[in-house]
Each structure stands twice: as structure tokens, then as C-alpha cells.
Amino acid sequence: MNNEKEKLGRREFIKDALRTMTAAVIGGMGGFIGGRAAKNTVWQLDPNKCVQCERCSTHCVLTESAVKCVHAYDVCGYCQLCGGYHRPGAKIQDTAAENQLCPTGAIQRTYVENPYYEYTITEALCNGCGKCVKGCGAFGNGSLYLQVRHDRCLNCNECAIATVCPSGAYQRVPSDRPYILKGQQGQGS
């Protein structure tokens, strides 16, 4: 009986020692990594690398992609003839559906003054396909571009779009600077 107790006591001691060691290992490893740990990060795509492959609109885990087109107004030429708004080959540059490039009609055009027009993205309609981005990049100043919208993005540990992005445009950025903006806003911050 005494022998049993002694055996139990010894086993407990070994266990205690092992537990302390394991806790030390976890703590040490945590400290090692924690020393290099940084601020929280979020996914964002670099518009300078983006090639508008349309996968942002199809590969997000959300039914409605978290990637949307945004507009850097201060880079926009406010043209009447907009490569991002009008479909290539459109004969007349008005707002009729047959002349629009956006498949969901998410770009709104409003008259500012002769000969300038403002283009606004209706985010609820945008599906992030990037057709307008391609058109604006080819013919215009590239003021339309895609960004991950953080009011929608779930910040998945592995972004489903990043895994299929052909140009490696997706990257993690610090969450206090969550956008890669064009124009003055991109430079000022």
C-alpha cells in the first residue's frame, strides 16, 4: 500500500515537472513569436499589381464579393467619354443601358458642368468584376480601381481570392492603414 502511494507520488511529481516544462515551452515560444508580433493585419489588394482577371467577383467566400470598385475622384478626368463607363465600341456616349460597360449598372453618371461628368460607384450594386477598372486603365487615368471593402471583408485567415490571384496583388496590410489608395488620399496618409 505504501509502495503504491510512493509510486503515485512519484508519478505526480514527474507529471508536475513535465507540465511546468510544457508551460515554459509554450510561454517561450509565445514570447519568441510575440516579440516579433505586429499589429493586426487585414487583406488588401494592390491596385498597381491588379490585372482585372475578374476573380475577385467570383472567388470571395461571401456571396457578394467584399471587393468593390472605388473611385479616386482627384485622378479622374471627368470625361464625357469614359473608358470605364462606356462599353468599347459604343457609338453614342450617353447613359443608355446598351452603352454601359458595367454589367450591374453600378456606375452612376451625373452632369457637373460642361463638359465634365462625375462618375460614382453604387457599392450595393458593384460585384467587383473590374471591367470598368480595365477600361479606365486602358483609355483613361486609372482612377477606377478595386479595393477590399473592410465593412464587408471577413478577414479570413487565408483569403480565398488571394489563393487564386494571378498577379500576387493580395497582401496583408496593417489594419490601421487598411487601404492602398490612389491619388492625394493615397499619398497624404
Binding site: A97, P103, T104, G105, N127
Partner: peptide, 14 residues
Amino acid sequence: QIRALHLLSRKAYF
């Protein structure tokens, strides 16, 4: 016809 179809397809999508 295009306008109608365009509207229809957008509606279908949403």
C-alpha cells in the same frame, strides 16, 4: 430590346 434584357439579367443576378 437590349435595355429590357439588360434590366432582366441584372434583376436575375440580384
